[in-house]
Amino acid sequence: MSKVKVAFTLNDQEISLLVQPGERLLDTIRDRLNLTGTKEGCGVGECGACTVMLDGQAVNSCLVLTAQVDGREVRTVEGLGGEEEVDKLQQAFIDHQAVQCGFCTPGMLMSARALLNDTSSPTREDIKTALDGNLCRCTGYKQIVEAVEAAAEAEGAD
């Protein structure tokens, strides 16, 4: 057995674990840490349902080895907003009917959150580029774009 010791920050909490060398971050999050908000849709980095933030950037957690995130910061959908509250982006998704089946939603939110943390007033093209790795089969994307625009505006107003 050659398990790897990893310590990282997950949703502002320090985590220390022993993992398999080939273990995917997605499996660590879902199976070991029981945070099932992050979804698996394809396993090959094409659908974006497993998107999390790694050091502030959107990444496909199905393509990241957990062993590689030692010392780094990971945020999942459960780490958005506070205990009771939802953040402005989540609220905008609710308000703009940007959610249908909801399976792509956590990944969409993480990609959008990464964008909004970097860019306070993104253009529509910026938003589309930030979300170009998140497939959605229900919404046709329009209400999602509108939600991200609204969230950017709401956060800019703060």
Partner: peptide, 8 residues
């Protein structure tokens, strides 16, 4: 069901 879906 939106709230449950945006919070994971």
């Amino acid at each position: 069901d939106a709230r449950a879906k945006v919070t994971g």
